[in-house]
């Protein structure tokens, strides 16, 4: 069955507000209901790409288009992109003092979400991201994403700072609440630890602001990276698309 493109990024170039080039011609297509993984070394532009998709004003798109659900996102505010069905789980979410997580979840939830909140009962009344453990931060981000009921959920380094038990818990919820319900998922990961738990349909590698290679089999990519490191991906004819 042929699936429909949900996110289409063509020839995207972007800089920071200070003018530093960070995205240099990214092409990316994510289809509806599919899981896409983006691997890459530190500083390759993966997280920046995620934030650019969400319209973070820290970055400027200087060329190219981001199309989501048939609509061009360029120039739209973050909140409008969220309303179209995008959501992001931050790697390092900021503390919002004086705002308990429960309050934020109630604001952003369209429907009664109390049952889902129970898994975060230990920190629901604490301020958003204030003194959260690594696991609590990831769970808080995940709950916020679930509350938004997105069409495409982007996870920025969901496996960083998580022990194996928490990683499995997180992946179980993502599989049950998002992937099995036909929500598209983009997972950005440096280590790739979460991939075997999410089994992506497509995996690519980003190096120096470009997506340089990709495969439908994430194991091939991980095997190559583990053997040669990320630098080798640039020149790898076997995986080049």
């Amino acid at each position: 069955m042929k699936s429909k493109s949900l996110l289409k990024i063509t020839n995207l170039h972007a800089t920071t507000c200070e003018g530093k080039k960070i995205i240099k011609g990214v092409e990316l297509t994510i289809e509806k209901g599919r899981v896409y993984a983006l691997l890459g070394p530190n500083g390759s532009g993966k997280s920046s790409l995620a934030h650019i998709i969400l319209g973070n004003p820290k970055y400027k798109v200087i060329k190219g288009k981001i199309i989501f659900g048939g609509k061009v996102l360029n120039g739209l505010s973050p909140e409008k992109r969220v309303r179209l069905g995008l959501a992001i789980a931050y790697q390092h979410p900021p503390v919002v003092k004086g705002v308990p997580l429960k309050v934020l979840l109630k604001i952003i939830s369209e429907n009664d979400f109390e049952d889902k909140f129970k898994i975060a009962s230990k920190f629901l009344t604490r301020d958003v991201n204030s003194d959260y453990s690594g696991g609590e931060k990831k769970l808080s981000e995940l709950l916020q994403i679930l509350s938004l009921k997105p069409k495409l959920a982007i996870f920025d380094e969901p496996d960083s700072g998580l022990d194996i038990k928490n990683l499995h818990n997180l992946a179980d919820i993502v599989n049950k609440e998002l992937i099995s319900k036909n929500t598209s998922v983009l997972v950005i990961t440096h280590s790739g630890k979460i991939l075997e738990l999410l089994n992506p349909d497509m995996t690519s590698v980003m190096v120096e602001g470009k997506i340089v290679c990709g495969s439908k089999n994430y194991k091939d990519i991980l095997k190559t990276i583990n053997k040669y490191g990320y630098e080798k991906c640039k020149r790898c004819p076997f995986l080049a698309s």
């Binding site: 969400l54 973070n56 004003p57 820290k58 505010s77 973050p78 909140e79 969220v82 309303r83 959501a87 992001i88 931050y90 979410p93 900021p94 919002v96 934020l104 604001i107 952003i108 916020q144 938004l148």
Partner: peptide, 10 residues
């Protein structure tokens, strides 16, 4: 920006 990516207006 964090809160705007949760759907809140500025």
């Amino acid at each position: 920006n964090y809160l705007r990516t949760r759907g809140l207006t500025k």
